[in-house]
Structures are given as C-alpha cells and as structure tokens.
C-alpha cells in the first residue's frame, strides 16, 4: 500500500504539476513490460475491501469461478480451473499481479483460459453491451490488486 501510494503520488505530481487528480490510463495505453505494470492505473491506491467483493462478484471479477481462495470460505463453489490464490502476495509483486489482472495473456501466454480484465484485445463478435468496454474498470483492477496483496501465508 505504501509503495502504491508513493508511486501514485509520483505519477500525480509528474503528470499534472499542481493538480491532485491523476489521469486514468486507458486500456490500450497500459504498458506491460517484463510481465509487470509498475504504476497504478488510476494514480490512486486500491481498496482491498472493495477488491475482495469484486473478486467474488459473478458480474465483475468472478475470480472464484476459477480460483480457490481460503479467505472467501463463506462463499460456496470455488472453481479449480486456475491455481489457488492463497499466498499470492508471497509469490508475486503488486506490479506483477497488476499485469496478470490487466491481461493475463501477456504473462501466461496467449493460450491461457484466464480473461484479461483491463484490455480491449479480446475475442471476436463481442456482444454489443460489452463492446469497447473492459471487464473491470481501472479502479476495480487496483482494488483487486490491493486485495491480492493481502493474501500472504
């Protein structure tokens, strides 16, 4: 959190001298370098409590569809398509987790089943209501990343 805060302050002050509001990075402008996205997409730190909700919400992250997560024991039906996320913060840095959530294809390769949650590089024939939209907003990505960073064992 502290690191995210420092980074976000750095961006805020570099990009908008004087202004306290940072620009949100558009999905096609996010740069994944060496499987990392270093800076917050919104310039704001994420909220781990909101991130926990987004993780479970079927209409948002629906991460539980594929990942077992001991921290969400109260929810029924955890999927087993992906690895359990328990201890994710011990295995990955925030920059790496941000890259995984933004577009897992850039980290795991094009064949992965895990959707990219903040990318417009998706499948064909996207239904009208989802065209030009990402699954999660930039702030929701930050929230989920902040939440994943709380998962250490």
């Amino acid at each position: 959190m502290t690191k995210g805060f420092v980074i976000s302050m750095a961006i805020a002050s570099a990009a908008l001298a004087g202004s306290a509001v940072a620009e949100t990075i558009a999905p096609d402008a996010v740069e994944i370098v060496d499987m990392e996205v270093a800076a917050s997409l919104t310039g704001q730190p994420g909220d781990p409590i909101a991130g926990r909700k987004t993780f479970a919400d079927r209409g948002k992250g629906n991460c539980l569809a594929c990942h077992l997560n001991e921290d969400l024991k109260e929810q029924l039906f955890h999927g087993e398509v992906g690895p359990p996320v328990d201890g994710a913060a011990d295995r990955w840095t925030a920059s790496q987790l941000r890259a995984i959530v933004v577009n897992s294809k850039d980290v795991f390769g094009g064949q992965t089943i895990m959707p990219g949650f903040y990318t417009l590089n998706v499948g064909i024939n996207v239904a009208e209501e989802y065209q030009g939209k990402t699954i999660l907003t930039a702030q929701e990505v930050e929230d989920v990343v902040a939440y994943l960073m709380t998962l250490s064992q």
Binding site: G79, V81, G123
Partner: peptide, 28 residues
C-alpha cells in the same frame, strides 16, 4: 477453436483444456 467475446474463450478452451474441473458450480 476461435475465441469469442469479451471473455475471449473458445469451445476448446473450456471443453478440451479443462474438462473434469469445476468452473464455479459447473463441472466441465
């Protein structure tokens, strides 16, 4: 084998790659 939609999945992604696994409450 063509991936479709915002979730970017093909028939093969689920039924060839992950049959036998649970995707939330659904057993693929």
């Amino acid at each position: 084998y063509t991936r479709t939609g915002q979730l970017n999945l093909a028939c093969a992604t689920c039924h060839e790659g992950y049959n036998g696994m649970f995707i939330r409450a659904d057993h693929l």
